[in-house]
C-alpha cells in the first residue's frame, strides 16, 4: 500500500475535524449581532490608524537570511542521507565526502558572518550604534 494514500487520508481527516468542529459550533452557538462587538480590539480604546502598519525592516532581513539557509538545508539533506553509505563504502575517502559539505557550509557561514557584521540580524539599534555606523562609513 502506498504511504501517501495514508498520508492523504490523514490530510483529509485533518481537514474534516476542524470543519466538523466548526459545523457543530455553528449549530450550537448563538448569534447576537452588534456593531461594537465587531470593532478591532485595541484594549478597549477606539481603534486608531490602519492595520497595515510599517514594521521593522529586520523582519525582511531575517526572512531573506532564512531563505538562503533553508534552501541550503534542502541541498544538505541528500548529502546527509548518503553520507553513511559513502563512508562505509571504501570507494571514496573521508576527505572526499566531507570536504564538499565543509566547503559549502563554510561559504554559508561566511555569508552569515557577513550578515552578522553588517547588522542583518541586529534587531534593534540604539542611537549610539546608529551613530557609530555613520562614522564608520
Amino acid at each position: 500500500m502506498n504511504d501517501w494514500i495514508a498520508i492523504g487520508a490523514l490530510a483529509l481527516v485533518g481537514l474534516l475535524i476542524p470543519l466538523g468542529m466548526m459545523a457543530v459550533s455553528y449549530l450550537l452557538r448563538p448569534s447576537v449581532p452588534e456593531t461594537s462587538k465587531r470593532a478591532t480590539y485595541e484594549s478597549g480604546e477606539v481603534p486608531t490608524g490602519g492595520t497595515r502598519i510599517r514594521f521593522n525592516i529586520q523582519y525582511y532581513m531575517v526572512a531573506l537570511l532564512f531563505l538562503v539557509f533553508d534552501i541550503e538545508t534542502v541541498l544538505l539533506f541528500p548529502w546527509a542521507v548518503v553520507y553513511l553509505d559513502a563512508v562505509e563504502s571504501d570507494a571514496v575517502s573521508l576527505f572526499e565526502i566531507l570536504a564538499p559539505m565543509v566547503a559549502f557550509v563554510v561559504i554559508l557561514l561566511i555569508g552569515l558572518a557577513w550578515a552578522w557584521r553588517n547588522g542583518a540580524v541586529e534587531w534593534a539599534q540604539t542611537t549610539r550604534q546608529v551613530d557609530a555606523e555613520g562614522n564608520r562609513s
Partner: peptide, 18 residues
C-alpha cells in the same frame, strides 16, 4: 536533483527580486 536546484535558484531569485 535538478528540481532541488531549481527550487534553490527560485528562492534566491525571489530574495533578490524582493
Amino acid at each position: 536533483v535538478l528540481a532541488l536546484f531549481v527550487m534553490a535558484l527560485a528562492a534566491a531569485e525571489v530574495a533578490i527580486g524582493l
